[in-house]
Computed example of a mutant assay.
Amino acid sequence: MDWLQVVVLSLVQGITEFLPISSSAHLILVPELTSWPDQGLAFDVSLHVGTLLAVVVYFRRELWRMLDRWLVSVRGGGTDQDARLAWWVIVATIPVGLAALIFHDAIEVSLRSPLVLALGLIVFGVVLSYADWRGRGSRNEYQLTLKDAVLIGLAQALALIPGTSRSGITMTAALLLGMNREGAARFSFLMSIPVIVLAGGLETITLLTEPRPVDWVAMLGGTILSGISAFLCIHYFLAFIKRIGMQPFAVYRVVFGVWLLWFFW
């Protein structure tokens, strides 16, 4: 891999992983628009590691409190808002984990097409726009209920459909349930941690069963670049939506989806 490919893929992964615009839709364009060879599974794992480190570092204080209070609750010491938030993240991860186990192969065979990708961008972009326009919620992530966590988790399972965007669909569901924009985004980011761990773990298992030469320098560069770009993306996205909201991302999704239809047909 040359360094231009490393930089482009790392930035695309780091930025689009957490924005509600579908990372899969952007990553599919890289080989279409360039003559680069496939980057390989090892490099994909390194990009997942970078984005995971970014969200863990950004929310390190919250995660430490959540883990500490969750362990207390497991030992029967009662629950507070941090322990409940940790439980809600776990609960919200279950649907997508089950859906991935059941439907992953079918989705890989049947839904990996530019048409599905474009329609996912457009349809769920319109839904995101409606949720943001309609939303007058004031609740933050600490005010979620078990029902909220289950419903947002079910919405997250839809992200297996290409073009949906994991962050986009979870923020949409949270807004429709009465959360404010920052709370919806923060809970979506916290939910990404177990999902990235699961996805990266599956890729790692596949990588171990199919050993190939590994470009460790490129992997390290990819981890660092994707991590830095993801960290900055989280920081500026939270500040951006507080002032402007989700509408620019919804419009971008629809325009991008229409362009994909034109590009592939």
Score class of each variant (00 low, 15 high):
Met1Cys: 08
Leu4Ser: 08
Leu4Val: 14
Gln5Ala: 06
Gln5Pro: 04
Val7Gln: 04
Val8His: 06
Val30Ser: 01
Val30Pro: 01
Glu32Gly: 01
Leu33Ile: 12
Trp36Val: 01
Gln39Met: 04
Gln39Val: 04
Gly40Met: 07
Leu41Tyr: 02
Ala42Trp: 04
Val45Pro: 00
Val45Leu: 10
Val45Met: 04
His48Glu: 13
Val49Tyr: 00
Leu52Tyr: 01
Leu52Ala: 02
Ala54Pro: 11
Val55Thr: 05
Val55Tyr: 00
Val55Cys: 02
Val56Asp: 02
Leu63Asp: 08
Arg65Leu: 15
Arg65Ile: 06
Met66Gly: 05
Asp68Trp: 08
Asp68Phe: 10
Arg69Gln: 11
Trp70Thr: 09
Val72Tyr: 03
Val72His: 05
Val72Asp: 05
Ser73Lys: 11
Arg75Gly: 03
Gly76Trp: 15
Thr79Phe: 06
Asp80Lys: 10
Leu85Lys: 11
Leu85Pro: 10
Ala86Thr: 06
Ala86Glu: 08
Trp88Val: 08
Pro95Trp: 01
Val96Gly: 11
Val96Lys: 07
Gly97Trp: 12
Ile107Trp: 09
Glu108Asp: 06
Val109Glu: 15
Val109Asn: 14
Ser113Asn: 12
Leu115Trp: 15
Val116Leu: 11
Leu117Phe: 06
Phe124Asn: 01
Phe124Trp: 05
Val127Trp: 13
Val127Tyr: 07
Leu128Lys: 00
Leu128Tyr: 01
Tyr130Ala: 09
Trp133Asn: 09
Trp133Asp: 12
Gly135Trp: 01
Glu141Lys: 15
Glu141Leu: 14
Gln143Tyr: 09
Leu146Phe: 12
Asp148Lys: 08
Ala149Asp: 11
Val150Thr: 10
Leu151Thr: 12
Ile152Gly: 03
Gly153Ile: 03
Gln156Trp: 10
Ala157Thr: 03
Ala157Leu: 02
Ile161Asp: 02
Ile161Val: 12
Ser165Pro: 01
Arg166Glu: 02
Ser167Pro: 03
Thr170Tyr: 01
Thr170Pro: 00
Thr172Gln: 06
Leu175Gly: 13
Leu175Thr: 12
Gly178Glu: 14
Met179His: 14
Met179Pro: 07
Glu182Val: 15
Ala184Leu: 12
Ala184Pro: 09
Ala184Trp: 02
Ala185Arg: 09
Arg186Gln: 08
Phe187Arg: 13
Ser188Gly: 10
Ser188Met: 10
Leu190His: 05
Ile193Trp: 05
Val195Met: 06
Val195Phe: 04
Leu198Trp: 14
Gly201Met: 10
Thr204Val: 11
Leu208Thr: 09
Thr209Met: 09
Thr209Asn: 13
Arg212Gln: 13
Asp215Val: 15
Leu220Thr: 09
Gly222Gln: 06
Gly222Asn: 12
Ile224Arg: 02
Leu225Met: 07
Ile228Tyr: 00
Ala230Thr: 10
Phe231Ser: 05
Cys233Phe: 07
Tyr236Gly: 06
Tyr236Arg: 05
Ala239Ile: 15
Phe240Pro: 00
Arg243Leu: 13
Arg243Lys: 15
Arg243His: 04
Gln247His: 13
Pro248Leu: 08
Ala250Ile: 04
Trp259Ile: 15
Phe264Thr: 12
Trp265Gly: 12
